[in-house]
Amino acid sequence: MKLLKKLPSRVLLFSWLTLAAAGILGAAEKQPQTVQISIGTILAGNQNDEFDAKLKGMEAQLKVLKYRSYRLLKNESQTVPWRGEKAFEIPGGRTLTITPQEFQDNRVSVKVRLTQGQKPLLDTTVKIPNKGNFILGGPPHEGGALVLSISAAAQ
């Protein structure tokens, strides 16, 4: 009987604790401080059938592009604060500037600017699933095309 009398208060207490824990976890998940931006620079071509073993994890994504060969030229990661800018040097005198915009629904919104010297080539804003990537390709290089894998991971 004593336990039954305590039951409603215990249920309430446990519920509040659970909600508080979920709230804290949710808040932590929704307010990352920085973003880890990774740029993989890949040279795609049709001269041979070479497939760089370092790109094994991206094979399914690269197959979409229908080139015969893929070689990883460079892989660079940088931690960028929200609304902060970070420039990545891309072969051929190009620069890729990334600005993380916001984190919402487990997606990282990034502003991407590709320039060649002073000349802007592309401005785009993309929402990437957290720890996911997208591909920006096309700039010609060494008889092939550059393929940039742009990944973002909120931290």
Partner: peptide, 12 residues
């Protein structure tokens, strides 16, 4: 969709 790939291809 199969490989969850989004590609932006720039024709220079």
């Amino acid at each position: 969709d199969e490989s969850k790939t989004t590609v932006i291809w720039l024709y220079q």
